[in-house]
Amino acid sequence: MKALPVIHFVLGLLLAPFLFGVINRTKAFFAGRRGQPLLQMYYDLWKLVRKGAVYSETTTWVFRAGPVVSLAAVVLALLFVPAGRLPAVAAFGGDILLVAYLLALARFATMSAALDTGSSFEGMGASREAQFSAMAEPALLISLAALGRHVHAWSLSGIINPLGPEAWRGAGPVLALAAGAMAIVFLVENARIPVDDPNTHLELTMIHEVMVLDHGGPDFAAIQYGAALKLWLLGSLLVGIAAPVHTGSAVIDGAAFLGGMCALGVCVGAVESSMARLRLTRVPHLIAGAAALALLAAIMALR
């Protein structure tokens, strides 16, 4: 049983790009196309890793460190994230703060690299990323704190592992509000519609994509892989809260968790197919809504 957390950590590392395949397939289905192969992102990563990298002469070591630091921070954060009933590789009281700030560190590295290029487009993207993530962070932390207060535990494993269907019957409002806030944070942090369109290549509307325009080859592979891991990380938090399954058998729980992740991918694809991207000035409005939901969950949990 000791090896179990390690297995699902490795599964996360392996399967994270697959989630993008599920999202893209869903979008293709809604558009009436067959879509790219489910494993397309693996091919892309493999292609990028074999390429060489080109560095502009105006950039410094900050630019080269960006992708490495951000990937390392996200992998480290993944160590603390449980998969539904299965505990994480490592856990201690207060690791919710560590995970939130490891994600912030990853973002900081990406933004510094973007600013280091001196390109005005990338600076614009970094500024938007900073604005939106600064607003999304309180929503994430407050909703986790509300849940932590509800179950009296301050580590991610301690919060998510005890949840089960019976928790939804007992404290449905707290869980539903926190899950709602987490869902919005999930879309904001991973730069999905309605906050950012991952397919757009019009610089004026981009947030995440515009920051990584100058990276190429293995660096770009690290960025893409880091984005996939972040999607997996926040997604597994969301699935752990929204669809807790408790059967007693680790294999069935794990399978239910993976099924939940696939369902999340389908949901994201469906949202992206049925909604338009919000106007940039309205995005803070949405994130404030998430913060309000999280605060509401906290008030309910404190009661």
Partner: peptide, 21 residues
């Protein structure tokens, strides 16, 4: 009881919806 609480939370959410729309 929990259904009642859920409905009350829905009332709170409609208030926030009104404030934000």
């Amino acid at each position: 009881h929990s259904l009642m609480d859920t409905l009350l939370v829905v009332v709170v959410l409609t208030n926030l919806w009104l404030l934000g729309s």
